[in-house]
Amino acid sequence: MSKPIIQMKNISKWYDDFQVLKNVSLDVKEGEIVVVCGPSGSGKSTLIRCVNQLEENQEGEIFVDGVEIARSGVDIEKVRSDVGMVFQHFNLFPHLTVLENLTLAPITVRKMSKEEASDLAMSYLKKVQMSEHAHKHPHQLSGGQKQRIAIARGLCMRPKVMLFDEPTSALDPEMVNEVLDVMQDLAKEGMTMMVVTHEMSFAKNVASKVCFMSEGELLEEATPSDFFNNPRHPRVQTFLKQIS
């Protein structure tokens, strides 16, 4: 029985009168790959952004590695530094080189020396096969390359868990696989991951658990084989029909 890295208990969130998240509970255990899918606007991004408090939830409790985070007095930056995140639109720092993108946080947050951070960054660049691009600026790279850099940037902090919010949605189709391959390698190495994606092949082959969200509710939480072969909720059935 491995320990839970992320525990969400009865999360609710409102934008004014509009309830985006309705009593959502979800656990991600060490080494697990949890895929979250669902129609656009169902609150997937909001949910995953609550994990490192880029969005605040008004109700419910979130624990990251046993620490309750949505509480005053918690050093939220410290928590965030242990939670990597990859965004749909990469969000690389355009004024910095690839290497500087990777070393900034290790140097300023982890207080590493410049050499130490560079060595670390180069090892992760090698892992995502981007070593030769270390001194380029982000605008010189393709979408797939940018996303691999973004993943490497998150890994440089040696996070306990990686969050992915639709990492392949903004990519041209031919670049989707290079990013999915990197994610798959990460999964094999035992990285704990929470992934919002529409890539059902990734969900089938890599996920330990697939969740389905609709209108702010977590409707289904199942193993991939159960999810794809005998989904219980009719909404999941229609969703699967639509995307296949």
């Binding site: 410290k78 965030r80 990597g84 639109h89 969000n91 900034l104 300023t108």
Partner: peptide, 14 residues
């Protein structure tokens, strides 16, 4: 872009 702040926050930068 708003994403810049997200990225910086997610890395734990103060």
């Amino acid at each position: 872009g708003k994403g810049q702040m997200d990225a910086a926050n997610s890395l734990g930068l103060r």
